[in-house]
Design a binder for these strands. Structure first.
Lengths: 220, 220
DNA sequence: GTGTTTGCATTGTTGAACAATAAACTACGT
DNA sequence: ACGTAGTTTATTGTTCAACAATGCAAACAC
């Protein structure tokens, strides 16, 4: 009889819809979002849509220029570098200070299992999602609502930068077992080693992503 | 000719007004903000005010409950602890990785000078502001727009927790010279020592603040 | 070709209206 | 007197239509 979301207001629901549209690529980076057009397409009022725009702008998914409207954010290299810097800082610290029996550890294990299953089926997009949730769980080890919130935003931005390329997500496949090794270290109480492993993990991931981004920019 | 704020839209201006009202205590923590009343008082439309509410909610200054309205956030001990944890993480890291001739160093020096002047005049509220800007400058050393943004939010939240008690801000007086010493270490290239000094600095500040908060809670 | 002006599309903002929800209040039965 | 059920009232959620303000582009004059 109890609902976890007691009052799913229209703004929130719409925000989630647009987030999804951005992640799936239905709304490409740089695309301009007209208030009038979108509000009609989503069957909501312009005012409500403007509230949603404010929401997503603060989350970093939309870019807003006064008197010019909003468009889907286009993450550049500076954004990638910034995001990975923050990931190294937050995730590694969370691992170092992690409490052995934290509930989030369970979630990390679950996502590894899921990633393996999806990988065996060749669903690399789902593998990417599981990988993302794995790292979210790492941040949740910190028990810091503000850091978790920040991480949610930057991981969404990262997904936007990735685009929805399956071959790019396939690049994440080798990380599955690295995640498992990382969890093993954590469960053995070797927090510092886990943190260092994650650091080099993130370095490598950053380099790969930057290279792909540069190649893509050169083509255009 | 040039304006630093090319298009000061009403939402932004109003948001700043409310931020100020919150900081000065004109809007006390826990106070409920009626859409109808406030919109009339500020002479803006309800729709516009709702956009402002969304803004400030994301910044952590307002608390929003669907179908119940918004009220000024009431930072509890958990919030203080979380904020200081993040400050230690972000500020110390910024100091460690700081580039010697970063423009923000200049700003740090400026705020120390200002703090001394205000302190000599007994204007402890202004000292508190200068101290806050000093730490903001530290975060700016990181050159991370996302971290700077996060820091802006949590420092505003911290100010809210402080209340507008002058005697509380006077507690910050001894930190003026600590800031100066910290800057000196940084200018000598002793980044690691500066970071460690800041860490104990923050520990002490956190303890003081928590103690005051607990005493205040006991009185009520 | 450059600069100005005009017109148009989009955003910024408003006010009023109605539906949906929560809180306050009343009436009732025991 | 007490708790419960139903009703009233105030507030929020959402929509709509309108107008002002801004930016962009095309037409125009020199």
């Amino acid at each position: 009889m109890k609902k976890s979301s007691p009052a799913p207001v229209l703004s929130e629901k719409t925000a989630e819809i647009i987030r999804q549209k951005i992640i799936t690529g239905e709304l490409a980076p740089g695309a301009r979002l007209s208030e009038a057009a979108l509000s009609e397409r989503l069957a909501i009022s312009r005012n409500t849509l403007r509230e949603v725009f404010r929401l997503l702008t603060q989350e970093g998914l939309l870019h807003y220029e006064p008197n010019c409207g909003v468009c889907v954010a286009v993450p550049d290299m500076a954004a990638i570098i910034d995001i990975y810097r923050i990931r190294r800082l937050i995730e590694c610290d969370a691992l170092r200070q992690a409490w052995p029996l934290h509930p989030a550890v369970e979630r990390m294990a679950q996502q590894i299992t899921l990633a393996r299953e999806h990988g065996a089926r060749g669903d690399w997009s789902a593998v990417g999602t599981a990988n993302m949730l794995f790292h979210t769980a790492i941040v949740e080890l910190s028990d810091s609502p503000r850091l978790v919130r920040l991480y949610r935003h930057i991981s969404a931005e990262l997904r936007l930068a990735f685009g929805h390329l399956d071959d790019l997500e396939m690049l994440h496949a080798p990380y599955i077992e690295k995640n498992a090794a990382l969890l093993a270290l954590l469960n053995s109480g070797k927090n510092e080693e886990a943190a260092q492993m994650l650091a080099s993990y993130l370095d490598q991931s950053e380099r790969t992503l930057l290279a792909v981004l540069q190649r893509r920019a050169a083509q255009a």
